[in-house]
Design a protein around this nucleic acid. Structure first.
Lengths: 136, 136
DNA sequence: TTCTTGACTTGGACTCTGTCCATCGTAGGA
DNA sequence: TCCTACGATGGACAGAGTCCAAGTCAAGAA
């Protein structure tokens, strides 16, 4: 994933210190951070980075398909840098911890044509909810 | 579903005109309204109903299991009065329209034990995304 | 190297969704 | 009919995110 910066540059991304800081935060340990957490961590490297820039940059990374937006509850969206391997999420209903999981089977095949109402279905998001070991 | 009011009364719910207005909005056509839309419709019947009351009442209906909260994106939560028949949702990525769907299969069975990380999984939320006929 | 320019960043105001709280009103039992 | 505890009110507040005008700077051109 350390070639994220290279891929972005290759796509004509203008490389600024702010974008680099955000990309490096996401490039680190694979956790699911909120925009605010990304901002806090980016600010450790680049103290004056603004919230607006973090939101802009995250939005661009999402459009480019480098990061996936995850909104598990009504709270803040989280940003998942593991965008290149399809997966679903397992969320603790109590503390909000998120784990990436890889279910077997194809949930899309489980939706009969008669239940599609003429929609062109392109994506299935599966969220498993429960209690993590610490909260159980 | 018109026995919603009866069920609520049976549970010791104090019946006020405001609660009745909210319940009747949800009791109507089966759509997935936001809290704000519920407020607007309830206000057509009871002009001075406050937002806080709508939020309180929706929260109680959710706790009582009469209504399900649906948060498909990071925007406003929607309230689904079809709480007594398990189902999933099909969402238009463009206009946000929601349809209830009933996939076959058991998605919970598709999550191998080795992928559960010690969680006690209790619920699976499946959201199909795509374009509705009007937006396609 | 310096210049130029349009893309990027900034921060503060603003919007939207939702919560909280002190006060007032009223449903429903005595 | 009266009481009172439960519910309603609305305004302040909070969290998440967007918008915008003005300032800054990356990177290609000369």
């Amino acid at each position: 994933m350390s070639d994220l910066l290279e891929r972005l540059r290759g796509r004509g991304w203008r490389m600024t210190s702010q974008r680099r800081a955000v990309a490096e935060v996401l490039d680190g340990e694979h956790v699911h951070l909120t925009a605010d957490e990304v901002h806090t961590r980016a600010a450790e490297r680049l103290p004056e980075i603004s919230r607006a820039t973090v939101y802009n940059t995250l939005g661009e990374l999402v459009s480019l398909g480098e990061v996936v937006e995850v909104s598990t509850d009504g709270r803040a969206k989280r940003y998942d840098p593991n965008a290149h391997r399809p997966h679903q999420h397992l969320v603790c209903s109590n503390c909000g911890t998120i784990r990436d999981v890889h279910p077997t089977g194809d949930p899309l095949a489980d939706l009969p044509a008669g239940e599609r109402f003429g929609f062109t279905v392109s994506e299935v998001v599966v969220t498993y909810r429960g209690l993590c070991p610490s909260c159980a």
